[in-house]
Simulated scan of single mutants.
Amino acid sequence: MILWIALGGGIGAILRYVTVLAFEKYQSPFYIATFIVNVIGSLIMGFMIIYNIQSQIVFAFITLGILGGYTTFSTFAFDFVRLAQQKKYITAIVYTGSTLIVSFIFFLIGLYLGGRIV
């Protein structure tokens, strides 16, 4: 099981890195990629909770591994500090609030979609 979680974590980390590179290519603010990653991860996690995968290994591979490696609270916190250091206080507050609210909403949407599809 641990190897599957580690493999999933590696895949998730690579997916996050590719997402960051894609947003950097279009010169988006540094925190936008983290916002998108956390919102998408919340959506998928909500879906996975309801989807009821029978295999514990597959569930752990996706939720603990891929989503654990893909989403990131530490980068979210670091982005907040970077914005504050740049004296972009309003942006830091809006970023923090919107990340929390939108991620939670997308988690609920994932729960809804998981229940509707299954």
Rank of each mutant, 00 (worst) to 15 (best):
I105W: 10
T34C: 02
L3G: 11
S28E: 13
L43K: 01
T63I: 08
I44H: 01
L111Q: 11
L43F: 06
T96P: 10
Y70N: 05
L7R: 03
I40H: 02
G115R: 09
S42H: 01
Y31F: 14
G114E: 00
Y112P: 10
I90E: 11
Q56W: 15
I11P: 04
F78C: 13
W4K: 09
P29Y: 00
Q85E: 14
M45R: 08
I66M: 06
F78L: 15
Q27S: 15
G65C: 09
T63W: 02
I50C: 13
A33N: 04
F78G: 13
G110T: 03
L43P: 00
A33C: 04
M48Q: 05
D79T: 07
A60G: 09
P29L: 07
E24C: 13
F80M: 13
I49T: 14
Q86N: 13
I11F: 08
I2G: 12
F104S: 06
V94Q: 11
L111V: 12
I14L: 11
G68A: 05
Q86L: 13
F30D: 05
A60K: 08
L113W: 10
L7A: 11
R82C: 14
N38I: 06
G8Y: 00
I53Y: 10
V37W: 00
N38D: 04
G10T: 06
S103W: 00
L43S: 03
A60H: 10
Q27Y: 14
